[in-house]
Design a protein around this nucleic acid. Structure first.
Lengths: 117, 117
DNA sequence: TTGATATATTCCCGCATGGGAATATAATAC
DNA sequence: GTATTATATTCCCATGCGGGAATATATCAA
């Protein structure tokens, strides 16, 4: 079995540095494909391909506007990575001492949310 | 140019699900290769290979003990992922409202730390 | 030394990759 | 209609992948 496809999940999609750059750019607002390509000094087909991968895993949304396609960030799709990495925050020394407390509060909030359903 | 090597950086190393499982296991303590292989229902060579990748990017440490090699987690190596994903936390809606505040406090602490040098 | 156990390495394979280059599709303007 | 701009797709290639299987290395025990 070969390596997982880049579109297999968010972890794989985000392993590529240029795709992280694209997400960073889109964090500052919606952009057309050529905007992205220009800002990242990448030619247009590569930009299209990277955006396609990001779209397939839900990290970006697309809408048409004339002949342009405007891509925007869907940062919520990064939550699996956030949640996973936070699992290890307890090992990161004193600066992160209060993170456990914070995460427990978050869990409480989610439980209350679930109960309301 | 092909896809980045799995040992290129932490993002690539961690894109593989089994390697994330290994890290999760090691979070609970040091383990031998066979312990890892047994817990994850993976045969020994695969466990060795995955551990090798994790070691190359600094996510695990190894020490010999008799004929065993004991691997342990080095969670600090996950910080690049943590820092990157936190860049997007502001987009995650109301549950994370206090995260900005929290992160600013962290930055303050780091500045004070730096000043003390 | 021989044997047993623990771990690492090597060879194989099918396969998805990211980039380049060229081309195809889509939408607007005239 | 044609021309132009914006985007997507296709084809190519070299490379590294993860898993299987077999083998090599290392360490202890008797």
């Amino acid at each position: 079995m070969p390596r997982s496809a880049t579109t297999a999940d968010v972890f794989n999609a985000v392993a590529e540095p240029r795709r992280r750059e694209i997400l960073g750019l889109l964090a500052r607002g919606e952009r057309s494909v050529n905007d992205v390509a220009g800002s990242l000094r990448v030619n247009q087909p590569q930009a299209s391909k990277h955006l396609k991968v990001l779209k397939e895993v839900g990290l970006v949304r697309m809408r048409g506007s004339g002949q342009q396609r405007l891509y925007s960030l869907n940062a919520a799709a990064l939550k699996p990575i956030h949640d996973w990495v936070m699992t290890f925050a307890q090992f990161w020394g004193e600066s992160y001492d209060r993170l456990d407390e914070y995460l427990q509060e978050l869990q409480e909030q989610e439980k209350q949310h679930a109960r309301k359903k």
